[in-house]
C-alpha cells in the first residue's frame, strides 16, 4: 500500500502485489481512473482491471471477513491520504440461466426445421 517516488505513478497494492497506474500530478487537476473488481462465485476469486488497460489478475484476499460492509476513504488512523471519488457501484452479475440456454436451443431447432421444410 503505497504511492511510489513521485514520478506520476500510482500504485495500488493488494497483499504484496504492486499494481501501478498513472494519475495526474498537476495541481489542482485530478485524473480519474476507472477500476473494476470482478468476483467469480464458482472459483471464489476476484480479478482487477482498470480503464488504462491494466489487467491486474487475481486479487489476494486480506482475510475471511468478520462483518458485512463496504468502506471507502481513509480507513486507517496511522496514515494520510486524499482522493476524489466520482462514483462507486457494486452489482451482481447475471449468469446465463438454464432457461436461456433451453430457449436458444429451441430457437435453433425451430430455425433448422424451417430451413428443412
Amino acid at each position: 500500500m503505497f504511492l511510489n517516488d513521485g514520478t506520476n505513478r500510482f500504485q495500488i497494492t493488494t497483499g504484496g502485489n504492486a499494481l501501478s497506474q498513472d494519475v495526474g500530478n498537476q495541481s489542482p487537476s485530478v485524473h480519474f481512473v476507472d477500476y473494476e473488481l470482478r468476483y467469480d462465485s464458482q472459483s471464489g476469486l476476484a480479478s482487477l482491471t482498470d480503464s488504462l488497460g491494466g489487467e491486474h489478475g487475481v486479487v489476494a484476499r486480506s482475510g475471511n471477513g468478520a462483518t458485512n460492509r463496504v468502506v471507502w476513504g481513509a480507513s486507517s488512523s496511522a496514515g494520510q491520504g486524499s482522493t476524489t471519488w466520482n462514483q462507486l457501484a457494486i452489482n451482481t452479475v447475471p449468469e446465463p440461466s438454464s432457461a436461456l440456454i433451453f430457449v436458444m436451443a429451441s430457437a435453433g431447432s425451430l430455425f433448422l426445421r424451417r430451413r428443412r421444410a
Binding site: 500500500m1 503505497f2 504511492l3 517516488d5 497494492t13 473488481l37 475471511n64 462483518t67 471507502w72 480507513s75
Partner: peptide, 27 residues
C-alpha cells in the same frame, strides 16, 4: 502527491463479507 507522495498511504476500498472474504484495495 507532488511534494510528499509518501503521504498518500491511507486510501482504500474495502469489501467485506463475514466468513467469506475481505478485499482491501489500497493506494
Amino acid at each position: 502527491y507532488s511534494a510528499v507522495p509518501g503521504r498518500q498511504n491511507n486510501n482504500v476500498l474495502w469489501i467485506e463479507v463475514a466468513n467469506e472474504y475481505l478485499y482491501v484495495l489500497s493506494y
